[in-house]
């Protein structure tokens, strides 16, 4: 049964990928890309990777297509040129693929429980993290503590992207902004009311995901994305100006920086009691409760930076789209 499901999902992915390669309408390609994200997320669920599925659904079927749509609104939806040098590319891709297939031949069989990947480092995470860290979700334990430094890097990556986008797209908050006519969809009475009911639910859900990551799937990143999604929904309905009046870009910049600094600051706190960077055990008398405090704090840092960065990026794109609209 499980195998049939796996195979069906993989087959769907294959169909989606081929369709993406063939379709000439970029709008359709964006939709296919969203489908690809959603099907991958479903596949992750069948692979028991619920945290990853959650994130992939939010990113692959949410944030990415949304950004693509914002860009298509500016650059047009049909592509012009035909394939360039398709044969050379086909040869290159075939060679690369053949090397990969050849590489799989000596890999441990799919799903085996006694392969090195399952045996060596991972075993400790599975067997001891519930006692060492004191929380049931092992993914959160590894993410926030054993490999907490990678996660700091991850937060810095999204921070870097936000700074890069700010540096490239028309300035946010700086310079004189013209007041635009209502550019949202706020005139629709039904949308207005539904969204007003929906907003608090979305934001509450974000908070739930933020603090529930230790017990179930979720955590700072997912919470940040959901929170950002709420604000993005608000922006789409009521227009950029209204949204920026509620949440000022200058505040978002400070928040994006604060999240990273909070994370790094928790790491530096460990120095005070002579422990290494990011050693949360040093944060309290009892190592396990120290881990607990550390994880809550750094997840908060992740959530703040991710939410602020994604909202900033979305604002920057909307603003660019607005200017584009005025020119044409």
């Amino acid at each position: 049964m499980g195998q049939i499901l796996d195979f069906t999902l993989l087959f769907l992915l294959l169909v989606t990928a081929v369709a993406t390669a063939r379709v000439r309408d970029l709008f359709a390609a964006v939709m296919l890309s969203g489908i690809y994200g959603l099907v991958s997320a479903s596949f992750f669920v069948t692979m028991d990777a619920v945290d990853v599925a959650f994130t992939e659904a939010a990113v692959g079927a949410g944030v990415f297509p949304l950004l693509l749509l914002a860009v298509l609104a500016m650059v047009g939806r049909y592509e012009k040129t035909a394939y360039r040098r398709p044969w050379a590319a086909l040869i290159l891709v075939t060679i690369t693929g053949a090397m990969l297939v050849n590489g799989t031949l000596d890999m441990p069989a799919f799903g085996s429980a006694d392969s090195p990947a399952q045996q060596h480092v991972a075993q400790r995470y599975i067997e001891e993290s519930p006692e060492e860290i004191g929380i049931p979700n092992m993914v959160t334990s590894v993410l926030a503590s054993y490999r907490g430094y990678d996660t700091l890097g991850e937060v810095v990556v999204i921070f870097t992207a936000a700074i890069g986008v700010l540096a490239l797209l028309p300035s946010l908050g700086g310079g004189v902004r013209r007041k635009r006519e209502s550019d949202g969809m706020g005139d629709h009475q039904v949308l207005r009311i539904v969204s007003k009911i929906l907003m608090p639910v979305i934001l509450l859900f974000a908070l739930y995901v933020q603090f529930h990551g230790e017990y179930g799937p979720g955590g700072g990143f997912q919470a940040g994305v959901i929170f950002a999604a709420g604000i993005i929904l608000y922006t789409m309905l009521f227009g950029l100006d209204t949204a920026q009046a509620v949440i000022k870009p200058s505040v978002l910049r400070v928040l994006a920086a604060t999240g990273v600094l909070l994370y790094g600051g928790v790491g530096l706190l460990s120095f005070l009691s002579g422990a290494n960077f990011l050693d949360y055990s040093a944060l309290a008398e009892d190592p396990v409760s120290g881990q607990h405090i550390g994880i809550i704090l750094i997840e908060l840092g992740v959530g703040i930076t991710v939410a602020a960065a994604i909202i900033l990026i979305f604002f920057a794109f909307s603003e660019a789209a607005g200017e584009n609209g005025e020119e044409t």
């Binding site: 700091l152 810095v156 921070f159 870097t160 700074i163 910049r253 400070v254 994006a256 920086a257 604060t258 990273v260 600094l261 790094g264 790491g267 530096l268 120095f271 290494n276 960077f277």
Partner: peptide, 20 residues
């Protein structure tokens, strides 16, 4: 003894601080 991490973490955290 913390120098190896300080080598990286100082510029890394200086970046968000610099944004302020």
């Amino acid at each position: 003894s913390h120098l190896p991490i300080l080598q990286v973490i100082i510029p890394l955290l200086a970046a968000p601080a610099c944004l302020l």
